[in-house]
Simulated scan of single mutants.
Amino acid sequence: MAPTASIDVDLASEQRLSDDKVFHLLQNRRRRAVIRYLRGTDETVSMRDIAEQVAAWEHDTSVAALDSDERQRVYIPLYQNHLPKLDDEGVIEYDQSRGTVKRTPVADQLERYLTLEDDESATAPPSEPAADETADEAVDGGDDWIDAYLGATGVTSGFFLAAVFNVPVVSALPNILLASLMLVTFATVTFAHTVFGATSEIPLPF
Rank of each mutant, 00 (worst) to 15 (best):
S6P: 00
I7F: 07
D8S: 13
V9A: 04
V9E: 12
D10S: 09
L11G: 00
S13G: 00
L17N: 07
L17E: 05
K21H: 09
R30F: 05
R30Y: 11
A33V: 00
A33P: 00
I35P: 00
I35V: 15
R36A: 03
G40T: 11
G40E: 06
T41G: 02
V45S: 04
R48M: 04
D49H: 12
A51D: 06
E52D: 06
E52C: 01
Q53D: 09
A64L: 09
A65N: 11
D67P: 07
R71N: 04
R73G: 02
R73L: 04
I76L: 12
I76T: 15
L78S: 04
Y79A: 03
Q80G: 00
N81W: 04
L83C: 06
L86M: 12
I92H: 05
Y94W: 08
Y94L: 08
Q96D: 10
Q96F: 05
S97V: 13
V106L: 05
D108K: 12
L116M: 07
E120F: 09
A124C: 02
P129L: 05
A131E: 13
E133C: 00
E133P: 00
A135W: 11
E137L: 12
D140E: 13
G141S: 06
G141W: 11
D144S: 14
I146G: 02
Y149I: 14
G151N: 07
A152W: 11
T153Q: 13
G154E: 11
S157E: 14
F160C: 01
F160S: 09
L161M: 13
A162P: 02
A163E: 12
S171W: 03
S171I: 01
A179F: 14
S180P: 00
T185F: 02
H193N: 13
G197C: 06
A198M: 12
E201Y: 02
I202L: 15
P205A: 05
